[in-house]
Computed example of a mutant assay.
Amino acid sequence: MGIDSKLCILVVDDNEDILQLVSELLVAEGYDAVTADNGEEMYAALSQRKPDLILLDVMLPGRDGFELCRQLRADPESPPVIILSAKDHEIDRVVGLELGADDYIVKPFGSRELIARIKAVLRRSGNTSVQRAQGVYCFAGWRFKPARMELLDNDSTVIPLSTSETDLLLVFVQNPQIPLSRDRLLALTKGRNSAAFDRSIDSHISRLRRKLGDNAKSPEIIKTAWGAGYLFTCAVDQI
């Protein structure tokens, strides 16, 4: 196995054994691996080199992984994040995804699963339609810039989007007023890895609704089409 180019992955974990094992695995797969064991070291590493992806543990000293993920997502230029955690309850996974993580992997995990998830997130963040989509999509007073992974409201306030949110919103604006099933949304946003987190679409849609000011109990922009999936109701103009 291996990849042609040296992509950089930052591993943040306070367990030295995990840092060593994951780093060795990444290097064997052809990646550059940088490590940090807390939030301060993570930001120090980020100041030296922007990684292509961050593997982020939840249980860290000081600021935990959830808080660090939230802070990272406040920067629209931040790399994609995969949370690694021993917390295996559904609510923990939901929280991680709600905070903007691109995936959530429960410890212990197999090396093949980890590499597959990493490749899937890198593929979505760097080689998908999001990278190719140019221009601006306008709907309901919003402007969506997929290449920059951001929304702008009527006051031109910038609202950053995660990779997964950008993927999902791009599918909606390219397929307005067409009911899309959860399986179809997964296939369009995650491709062959659509089975990995088949409920993550619901979390991403909840986050998109919140960022769009779309009432969760009675949404007007992204409606639930009972028995059919989800419907993006707005007319869309591309400029």
Rank of each mutant, 00 (worst) to 15 (best):
P79W: 00
E24P: 00
I3C: 03
S5W: 11
A147I: 11
F172T: 05
D4A: 13
P51E: 05
L26Y: 06
R182D: 09
L26Q: 06
P76S: 14
A28P: 01
A116M: 04
Q71G: 10
D92S: 10
I205M: 10
R124E: 12
K217W: 08
L168A: 13
I201M: 14
D37Q: 13
A196D: 13
S78P: 14
M59C: 13
R207L: 07
Y31C: 12
S162E: 09
S78N: 07
S181K: 10
P108Y: 05
K6Q: 06
D92R: 03
S156W: 07
F144G: 04
G126Y: 15
G62K: 07
I159D: 03
Y137P: 08
D64I: 09
Q71H: 13
L10E: 06
L55N: 08
P160A: 04
D17A: 08
Q71Y: 10
G65K: 02
R70M: 10
D214T: 06
S194N: 13
L114A: 14
K145A: 08
L99Q: 15
S206G: 11
E29W: 02
Q20C: 02
I159Y: 15
R192W: 07
Q20S: 09
N38Y: 06
Y104L: 03
D52K: 01
S181L: 03
E67F: 05
T233C: 09
I91L: 08
E40S: 13
D52R: 01
L208F: 07
D92I: 00
L170V: 04
V11M: 00
R199S: 15
V171W: 04
C69V: 09
G126E: 09
L25S: 04
Y230T: 10
